[in-house]
Amino acid sequence: MAFLKTNYIKKDSVIHSLNPLVKFSWVSLVVVLFLFSGSMTLFIVVNIIILLLAFLGKVGRDFIKGLVFMIGPIFLFSLMIHGLFNPFGISEEVLFSFYTINISLEGFYYGLFFGFKISALISVFYLFILTTYPGRMVTSLRTIGFPHKLGFLVNATLQIVPLMLREAETIIDAQRARGLETKGSITKRLGAYVPLLGPIVLGSVMKVYERTIALEVRGFSSTADKTSLYVENITLTDKLLIALSVVLLIIYVVFRVIG
């Protein structure tokens, strides 16, 4: 799993240097579209824009790799399920027929729409994570009044994924050393991951106690006013970009209401 980037990638790019709040506002815009829009064209456009932004942010290759890994299965299942069980009821148009199995055109189209819709949401968050330094993100979250515990939660969640993956590697090495077969046919390989689940899940739960002590010792529940190691400056460009996202949001809402 080491090929999959789940955390910040250090690069020097326009996207990286933006204030995290700018990225937040644009992510929120996509979330609103995700919740309220039913246009496939719109989602395809959003997907393309995010992909271009990923290349602008110099993380294009890792972005595509991660995205294919996350969205590929969703597309596959979405097309299969919606194609087989058309959500709009019985359809006349059959795209593909195999004995008694019919994939309907309408269902297939809906599956495609659903895939692009989810893809837009996942890719915008993924790009955000890849290009935003967690420390800066927490700082700017605090400046707009987010509670610091929530900031920590977001930060720690992002960091726990690579840690758990590393932990999984250690456990599988230990199990291999005691004779677990991890090479061979696909079923054998998949089967090898089952004994991994117990230790990694239980281990993480047990670590909660230790983690709690570690946090408490560092004054996590102290009632003092919190401070930050970093300062976040908001430039004029940042402000303009935030304003632009708000304007786009308003335009979208107006169009939805009128149209």
Binding site: Y8, E210, I213, A214
Partner: peptide
């Protein structure tokens, strides 16, 4: 300061 070095890291910082 605890025995296991890993258990006292909070994971709050990169």
């Amino acid at each position: 300061i605890m025995q296991s070095p890993k258990s006292q890291l909070t994971g709050a910082g990169l």
